[in-house]
Computed example of a mutant assay.
Amino acid sequence: MDWFESHAQKHKKIVEKLQSKEYTKEQIIDYFDFENMKKHEVDFCPLYKENKKCHDMKSLNCYMCACPNFRFSDDGISKYNEQVILSECDINNGKKFSGGGFIHQDCSSCTVPHHRAYILKNFSYDWREMMSECKIK
């Protein structure tokens, strides 16, 4: 949850900066291209400093870092064989990993939210709005 809130603030700050420069929605999305972000927004993602992508894809867009299909609860969603399930995928994409009594969604092989067309289809200037279904209460 801490990461979620921190990331929302970083995203908001960048979007507001670009809006103040009168960037269009399309220009804002383009700005969030991995290659541009690692140069101009180094603190947005710890992987930028390592020039490392979170997903192996040619054109990675970071506007929807995290995914609107991701579901999580710090208290756990359910249990499976005595392990607490902390997260899952709403479209059943990817695999899971477990350890320390917890099961967590492994999104590393899924590129769904990082394609420009998907971002345009689900676009909001407000990252929290796009991710509003992620947190399970």
Rank of each mutant, 00 (worst) to 15 (best):
C110W: 02
M37P: 05
M130N: 07
L60W: 05
K58A: 05
K53N: 00
C45S: 11
E16T: 02
P68Q: 14
S124Q: 04
T111Q: 13
R128D: 02
S59K: 15
Y23A: 08
H115A: 04
S59H: 12
K96M: 11
K49W: 02
H11K: 02
D33S: 14
C54F: 03
G94V: 13
K17H: 04
L120E: 11
F97E: 13
H40A: 05
P68C: 11
C107Y: 05
K95G: 09
S59I: 03
C65R: 09
L120H: 09
H40P: 00
Y23H: 10
C107R: 11
Q27D: 09
K17D: 08
L86N: 04
H104G: 07
K25H: 02
K58W: 04
D2Q: 10
N93E: 15
K135L: 13
D33I: 07
N92D: 15
C54H: 09
D126V: 05
D74H: 08
S87L: 09
L86P: 12
P113R: 03
Y63M: 12
D43T: 06
I28N: 04
I103N: 11
N93Q: 15
H7K: 02
M130Y: 03
E133R: 14
L47A: 08
T111L: 00
K13W: 05
D74Q: 15
M1E: 06
S6L: 06
E26D: 15
H55M: 00
F123W: 12
I119K: 02
Q19I: 10
